[in-house]
Design a protein around this nucleic acid. Structure first.
Length: 273
DNA sequence: AAGTGGATCAACCGCTGTGGT
DNA sequence: AACCACAGCGGTTGATCCACT
């Protein structure tokens, strides 16, 4: 199109090291190539340079002929009908442009490829972008819900802390740590203490629990790492696994979780269902 | 009027498949 | 079997056009 005009006027084109011209084709080069094909037919493109006096390599000649000079090429815009064919065939074959082009007489693979890139690639990107926006919204909703839950949990914990603070628990644990209990120096006492700390109504907060575990470690000079509590991350992992809810995920979910955990998860998940 | 950025398209590049020797 | 030349394909580039600010 405008390449030809530009090349014709300005004499563009550069010479490669091997002496091949590159860049836009001139009107004279086109004429030589057309004449060559008229005399010798398509093919044997590497002979074009020698037989037609063109300083173009075979690949360049073939491409110019196939994409621009062929007499059966259909000019003009892609019609809606052709567009629907492209869509359908691309859905079936993907980026096999030459295969698609065979179903569209007069259209080249390059043309279809360019058309797809300019018309559908961005639509595809928009679809992806929309999906991304939805994901962001979901994340925001999740974060808001997370904060709300955290706030509620803190309030509930504070209430429970005051209501259920069991002085007997505290006294028993502290007594064990202080050494009133003779067993606390023995290795067997460690699991017992750990169990006390874990199951006692007191402590209720993570800080309190951490404090007691530290005391326990210091007193016994052993590693007393508690079982990891149920974190939000684990709960959300459960939520994402619900994507597989119709498959084995649901089965595993129920099988692997205690009823309490399952209920907790269920309560967390329901707002998003 | 000038600048800018997206759209368009011709052409190139690198890789792979195929056929001949 | 190995090598080579060629054809074809898909991805990418780069220059120009054109609408918009």
């Amino acid at each position: 199109m405008y390449w030809g005009a530009m090349a014709g006027h300005m004499g563009w084109g550069i010479l490669e090291e091997e002496g091949w011209r590159k860049g836009p084709w001139t009107a004279e080069e086109d004429r030589l190539l057309i004449e060559y094909v008229r005399l010798h037919g398509e093919g044997r493109w590497n002979s074009v340079a020698r037989l037609a006096g063109l300083k173009r390599n075979g690949k360049s000649c073939r491409l110019r002929w196939v994409n621009y000079l062929r007499p059966d090429l259909k000019r003009g815009q892609i019609t809606p009908h052709e567009e629907s064919i492209i869509l359908e065939l691309h859905a079936r074959w993907g980026n096999r442009w030459s295969t698609i082009a065979r179903s569209l007489p007069g259209r080249t693979d390059n043309e279809i490829k360019n058309y797809w890139r300019t018309h559908f690639k961005k639509k595809q990107a928009k679809v992806t972008s929309d999906a991304s926006e939805k994901a962001k919204a979901r994340l925001l909703k999740r974060q808001q819900f997370h904060q709300q839950q955290l706030h509620q949990q803190q309030q509930q914990q504070q209430q429970l802390h005051h209501q259920q603070l069991n002085q007997m628990d505290l006294k028993r644990i502290m007594a064990l740590l202080d050494g009133d209990n003779e067993h606390n120096k023995s290795a067997q006492a460690v699991p017992q203490l750990r169990q006390e700390i874990t199951t006692a109504a007191f402590p209720q907060t993570a800080d309190e629990q951490s404090f007691l575990y530290t005391m326990l470690n210091e007193n016994n000079n052993v590693s007393a790492v508690p079982e990891a509590p149920i974190t939000e991350d684990i709960l959300w992992d459960g939520l994402w696994n619900l994507d597989d809810f119709h498959g084995n995920g649901a089965v595993n979910f129920n099988a692997n979780c205690s009823t309490a955990k399952a209920n907790t998860l269920h309560n967390l998940v329901v707002p998003f269902c």
